[in-house]
Structure formats: structure tokens, C-alpha cells
Simulated assay, not measured.
Amino acid sequence: MRTALVIGTGLIGTSAALALVQRGVTVHLADHDPQQARTAAALGAGTDAAPEGPVDVAIVAAPPAHVAGVLADAMRRGAARGYLDVASVKGGPRRELEALGLDLGGYIGTHPMSGREKSGPLAATADLFEGRPWVLTPTRDTDTEVLNLALELVSHCRAVPVVMDADAHDRAVALVSHMPHLVSSMVAARLEHAEEAAVRLCGQGIRDVTRIAASDPRMWIDILSANPGPVADLLSDVAADLDETVRALRALQSSDDAERRKGGTGIEDVLRRGNAGQVRVPGKHGSAPRAYETVVVLIDDQPGQLARIFADAGRAGVNIEDVRIEHATGQQAGLVQLMVEPKAAAVLTEALRDRGWALRQ
């Protein structure tokens, strides 16, 4: 791959362009909003000048509802040797292209499983995809050359290729991305008119649950409109669980002992099923989840605090497996949760205490 055309210079398109430029690929940028393409070019993602002839690969980074139309236009113009898109839904765009009667040997649908709450070229980074799965959905008609171009793109972006059927992909992302986003938004919506005194009690739990609810609604309308069936099926299952949980909670209010026991059993069931599902979420480097010990450190909100903690852990010979920060509401302080191997917890605790850090249980 020596040349590429990125059509759509939002977060994903500009991030891919930045990564390709770093690998020496000449990237041309196009967008329905020329100013956005110029912004991406100013960030170093390529040039907004049109290519003089066909490029090696055209990357369509448009919303799912517009992917087929943009791809069809590029194919009819002969803009590239190979074509791919990076939309979060795969089955629909391919069926639309088939309905248009286009030769799909030169096309492959892809989806990088990475993103941010922010959108647009200014949110883009060259390392957005590093270590993240990048789904490829080839068919029997896909040219080997196009599959190789897609694999080269994934390699340049330092992502991990995953091959899937298009419809299986759409069911999977409904489960791990689209449905959770709606549930997060529903939880966050409870806060909109809540009393200020209650909102000030927000801790890390509610922040974790509602983080993705900050995303652009217009973008998510496009995504959900392209994959409504699988998402609706999953939400129907969630709704059934909610109904059962509400009944169980009402039963806990009963004056009848048997009814209260029944309610407690219902709540325990949903919590245990939640435990069983949560442990299946891949852990570090995509491996099976591991049990870590947590060392909690109180820090001031000052520059260099985190760097000092990591340096002190390194001097103690302890590798930090994961880290979380819980900010104290209304205070210039926070709690840093350092996840380490169980055998390293005591070593890290002693080392941090010796260096003057305030630890918490």
C-alpha cells in the first residue's frame, strides 16, 4: 500500500489516516464537509487535494446509512484498486451494494473495535486502534488482493485482525456495544432531573456505567438505525430481567417471610448471572480475566503524582496490571486503585508506605 483515499474525516477516518501517514503512505482526504477534510490535513493526516489517479485503497469512514452510497460512487469512478469501509454495521451495507448490482470482488467490509466519546478529526489519534480488534468480513467473492490490503491497513494501525461473517458481526456488536450504549444512556437519563444533593454523591460506579452515554446522539442514531433488530432483541431480554428484578424487589417489601425469601432468591439470581457474565469479559491483552489485588493510594490533585507512584512501583519491582482513579467530589484529591498480581500486593504496599504515600483499605 503506497496510496490511500480516506472518505470521511471524523474520528475513525482521521485516526486511520494519521496511522497510515506515519507508515509512509500518501493519504488523500475527502469529506462531504471540505472544512473537516482541511482540518484533518492540518493535523498531519494527509492532503485534502484529490488524487491524480486511482489509489491503492479507498477507505470509506461514513455513517452506516451512507456507506453504500459513498462506496458505490467511489467504485463507479474507479477511485481505487480496493475498497473497504469501517462502519460499525456490516450486513446492511453489503446487501445494499449487492442490490445496486456492483461487482463486490474489490470490496471488503471492516470494523475497527475502537472509539472515543468525542468525535471529529480533532479527537483523532494515530494510536487509536493499537492492540484493538479490527473485524474483517470477507466473502467467497472477495479478491485476495483486497483482503491483503485490508490486512496491511490493520497492521499499519497496529490493530488485531479478526475474521467474522458480516451478520454474526452485527449480532456481536449489538451485544457488546450497541445495547450497552442504550442501557448506559437510560441510566444516565435518571440523573437529568435528580436532586443536586443526590448527584453530588456520584462515585466511580455511576461514572463507569454512564461514561459512554456522553457520545454524540446523532452518530448513535445512525448506528442504531442500521442494526435495530439485534439490538431490540437484546433489549427485550434485558426488559424481561428488569421486570423480574422489579417483582423481586417488591417482594422484599412484603410482610410475608416466604415472599421475602422468594424476592431475595430472585435478586441473588440476577446478581450471580451478572458475575458469570462479567468474568467472560477478556482481560489484559485479550486473555482470560485474572484475579488481581488492589492497592488503594490517596493522592493530591497535583502534576506528577501518578508518575511518582508508577516510578515507586517500578523501583519496587512491581508491574501495575491496571489502574483506576476515583475522584473525590468537591475535593482536590482522589483515590488511585492499582491492580497487581496477588503476590506483589504486599511488596507494593510496603514500598509505597516507606515512600510516604497514604494508603487506604
Rank of each mutant, 00 (worst) to 15 (best):
V297R: 06
A198T: 12
V21A: 01
V160Y: 07
Q302L: 15
D167N: 02
A19K: 07
N148A: 13
D170K: 11
D73S: 14
Q332L: 13
G314E: 14
I267H: 07
R2C: 01
A194Q: 10
T14G: 09
H327A: 11
A123L: 06
T144I: 13
A351S: 04
N275P: 08
H66Q: 14
L20K: 07
C157R: 07
V176C: 11
D243A: 11
P51Y: 04
H111A: 08
A87K: 04
E52P: 08
D56Y: 12
A240M: 09
A316S: 06
V67T: 15
I59W: 05
G205Q: 02
V340C: 03
S88Q: 03
H66V: 15
E145Q: 04
A345D: 12
P342D: 04
R23E: 12
A50P: 13
Q305S: 15
V25T: 04
A80F: 12
R116L: 11
Q278K: 07
I299A: 15
G82L: 01
A74H: 11
P64Y: 05
A37I: 02
V86W: 08
V163K: 10
E145C: 07
I267M: 10
S215W: 01
S15W: 04
A4I: 07
G69I: 09
M1L: 13
E195C: 01
L271Q: 03
T9F: 07
T139M: 14
R23D: 12
A37K: 02
A344M: 14
G286Q: 05
E244Q: 14
M186F: 13
N319E: 15
T210F: 10
R207D: 01
H28R: 11
G91T: 03
I212M: 03
I320F: 11
T144P: 05
G91K: 06
A42G: 13
H193Q: 12
D322C: 00
A168D: 15
A19Y: 01
L147F: 12
D256I: 09
M75V: 06
S215E: 13
A258G: 11
L71N: 02
A68Y: 10
M164L: 14
E341Y: 04
A188C: 11
P93W: 00
V135P: 03
E259G: 05
T144A: 14
M179C: 14
A214H: 00
R116M: 08
A159D: 09
L104C: 03
G8Y: 08
G10F: 07
